[in-house]
Simulated assay, not measured.
Amino acid sequence: MSNQAIQAEQECRFQHSCGAIELLIEPIEKDLGDFSARRVLPSIERKMVGPWIFFDHMGPADFSPGRGIDVRPHPHVNLATVTYLFEGEILHRDSLGSLQCIRPGDINLMVAGHGIVHSERERPEVRRVAHRLHGLQLWLALPEKDEEIDPAFYHYPTKDIPDTLAGDVPVRVMMGAAYGVVSPVKTFAETLYVEAHLQPGQTLSVPDAEERAVYVAKGEVTARGTVIPEYSMAVFGQESGIILEAVRESRIAIIGGEALGERFVEWNFVSSRQERIEQAKQDWQSGAFPKVPGDDSEYIPLPE
């Protein structure tokens, strides 16, 4: 998705905690037109967790016939986007010529590198009927040595994403390694992204990483007596042995990895260099970015 505002950092609600949890972030809903998203990262008090610098929970949004997702072409630099759906479908197009539907359980990884343009729409068959969209979109900052690599697009169907049991809890290891399995999804730095579905009373240990957080997409969990409510993210300290317990049926995403250092974020651009973002803004305004084949008649202008 495209960020609607030039400044990406959100005025979320925060609670400072003790013990295993350093910060509890409650996102504020952002109106994206026909649907809304809960934007957790970047925020004023916490810009990144490991290499993750953007975290949106889209929907769930119910669309009547004739309506749906219609994100016009927009640019990215020096980052990688990760799209994952719980329900619905998105049609991805980009300036490399990629044309790919993403469906629940798949992962779309788009590496912007020195610059890419993409759109996110829906097939006519989907828009013709009432439908729902629900999922997560995340951005990864790239290590400085990889910020200007050639753009690339990778699609991983659901059958290629490994799942296992952590005790009696079903987990999917989307990126990185955890619970004895390794995801095939390409990474550029040490990266952790896990999804789990817990029933009331079930427990799950949080994998160790330099930085870690858990987002509760559904339900409610606790960590060492601290409640992590639905639609909130708990950022953990570095101590090991953190156990999550489900208060009610819960769907969670655990993210993390190695810290990459300071990054600047404006609109859809992320970089270790502010001057690179200024250049990207000028390039978009001047039309220097490549076009999206099959979707080149409109675009999202740079916000004021």
Rank of each mutant, 00 (worst) to 15 (best):
P151A: 15
T203H: 01
G237L: 01
G261P: 07
K159A: 13
I243Q: 13
V185Q: 05
A178N: 02
R273E: 14
V216G: 04
A217F: 11
S205N: 09
D283L: 02
G201H: 09
V182R: 15
F153H: 14
V173I: 14
G176A: 07
Q199G: 03
F264L: 06
R212Q: 12
V181S: 05
S240I: 00
S232H: 10
V169E: 07
E266L: 14
I161T: 08
H197V: 11
E210N: 01
M175T: 09
P162C: 09
I254F: 01
G201F: 09
Y215L: 15
W267R: 08
E262T: 12
R224V: 00
A234G: 12
T158G: 05
D160Q: 14
V216L: 06
Q274V: 04
V221T: 06
E258W: 00
M233P: 02
A234M: 04
I243W: 05
L192A: 01
D283A: 15
G241F: 05
D150H: 13
I228C: 04
E190T: 14
V235T: 03
G219R: 10
S271N: 10
N268H: 08
V173D: 04
G219I: 09
V216P: 03
V265W: 00
F153S: 12
E258N: 11
D160V: 09
F188K: 02
Y193G: 08
E195L: 10
Y179S: 03
S271E: 07
F269D: 02
L204C: 03
L260K: 07
G201W: 08
I252V: 15
W267L: 06
P151W: 07
F188C: 01
H197E: 13
F236V: 03
N268Y: 05
V173Y: 04
F153N: 02
E239H: 10
T187Y: 00
R172K: 15
V221F: 02
R276D: 15
A280V: 07
D283Y: 03
T191S: 11
G261W: 08
S272E: 03
V169M: 07
G261C: 08
R263S: 02
G256Q: 04
V270E: 01
G237W: 01
V169D: 08
F269Q: 01
E211W: 00
D168K: 13
A217C: 13
Q282G: 01
A196Y: 01
E262V: 05
R276K: 14
S240A: 14
G219Q: 05
Y154N: 08
Y179P: 03
Y193A: 14
P162N: 11
W267A: 05
A189E: 07
E249N: 12
R276F: 00
G167V: 07
V181H: 05
V216I: 15
V214Y: 03
A246S: 11
K186W: 00
A209D: 02
L244Q: 04
T222A: 03
P157E: 09
A234C: 06
A253S: 14
Y154D: 06
S272R: 10
V171R: 02
E278T: 11
P170A: 08
G201V: 10
A280L: 08
G256W: 04
E258T: 14
T222I: 10
G219Y: 05
Q199N: 13
A213M: 12
G256T: 10
S240V: 04
V173L: 06
P229L: 06
A234V: 04
T226I: 14
R276N: 14
R276I: 00
E230R: 12
E262M: 05
S272F: 03
A178T: 03
Q238R: 15
